[in-house]
Structure formats: structure tokens, C-alpha cells
């Protein structure tokens, strides 16, 4: 079980598609875990949140999980993964890739860069919800995550 004192789970959603952000938020809201979601609309903003660089992110908590889209403007998901794994403070944060692509090359490249999981966004909304809930179950219940910084 989760041993952190704050019972809310912090999830950073990195996606440039507002529709997808809404769907993920809806799915999390319908889940059995209390989640605090943060949103970054591209990779650059995601890194700013993670490193608390901009004034508006200075109080941002360290996420328990990052749901990362791959194709985004300015800084794509692969670049975010690489930057996180090269940063000792961010390297152990679990990152699950959540993307439209089911291209093998993207799957292999994501795992090579240290992704903790890879989910192709399903067409079926219910399926998407089930997938998000499975992720929650896995990361917030089944396994132990590294301690928060």
C-alpha cells in the first residue's frame, strides 16, 4: 500500500490534445484513487513543472506518475523521457506513455528511453477508462513506487 502521508496521488498529464486531457481527467475522476492532476501541454512545459522552474510551478508537487504523450510541439515525449532519465532527481519517477501510435518503433524507443509502460489510446472510451484505471491499480496499489523527493 501507499505509505506516503499525503493520500492524494499526484499525476502529471503531458498532452497537447485538450480532448485527451479531458478524457484522462474524467477517467481518473471515475477511478477509485484520489488524484491530483497537473497538466503540461508540451514537453517543455512538462520539464518546467518537474523542475519547478517557472514561478507558477514552484509549488508543484513531485508527481507519483507521469502520463506522457509522444507527439507534441516544442519538445516531444521521447525528448522528455531522455531529459528525465538524465536528471538524477527525476530519473526514478514512473512514466507511462499514453499515445495514439501503435507503431513498433515508437514502442521500442520508449522502453529504450526508460518508459515504465506503454499504452495505445484505445478508440473505445470505455476501454480508455479501463486502461487508465488499470494503470492506477498497478502504480498506486500493486507496486511500490520510489519515495517522493
Amino acid at each position: 500500500m501507499q505509505s506516503n502521508s499525503d493520500s492524494r496521488f499526484n499525476i502529471l498529464i503531458v498532452d497537447d490534445e485538450p480532448g485527451d486531457i479531458d478524457l484522462v481527467r474524467l477517467a481518473l475522476a471515475e477511478g477509485r484513487f484520489l488524484c491530483h492532476t497537473m497538466v503540461a501541454i508540451n514537453g517543455k512545459e512538462a520539464m518546467a513543472v518537474l523542475r519547478r522552474e517557472a514561478p507558477r510551478f514552484t509549488d508543484a508537487p513531485t508527481p507519483d506518475l507521469v502520463l506522457l504523450d509522444l507527439n507534441m510541439p516544442q519538445m516531444n515525449g521521447r525528448e522528455v523521457l531522455r531529459a528525465m532519465k538524465e536528471d538524477p532527481l527525476l530519473a526514478n519517477i514512473p512514466v507511462v506513455v499514453l499515445t495514439t501510435s501503435d507503431v513498433e518503433r515508437d514502442i521500442v524507443a520508449s522502453y529504450d528511453l526508460g518508459a515504465s509502460g506503454y499504452i495505445t489510446k484505445p478508440v473505445d472510451m470505455d476501454q480508455l477508462f479501463r486502461d487508465i484505471h488499470s494503470v492506477e491499480e498497478y502504480w498506486f496499489c500493486a507496486v511500490r513506487r520510489p519515495p517522493r523527493n
Binding site: G19, T99, S101, D102, V103, M125, D126
Partner: peptide, 20 residues
């Protein structure tokens, strides 16, 4: 890649939100 990502994205959202 465009087919895989960008063109499928709106279609998928269209389907998801229609169902929603």
C-alpha cells in the same frame, strides 16, 4: 507517422466523445 498519430487522433476523439 502523421497517419499514425495526427490523423488518427481527431478520429479517435470523435469516437470517444460521441460515445461519451
Amino acid at each position: 507517422e502523421v497517419l499514425a498519430h495526427h490523423l488518427q487522433e481527431p478520429v479517435r476523439l470523435q469516437m470517444a466523445f460521441a460515445a461519451r
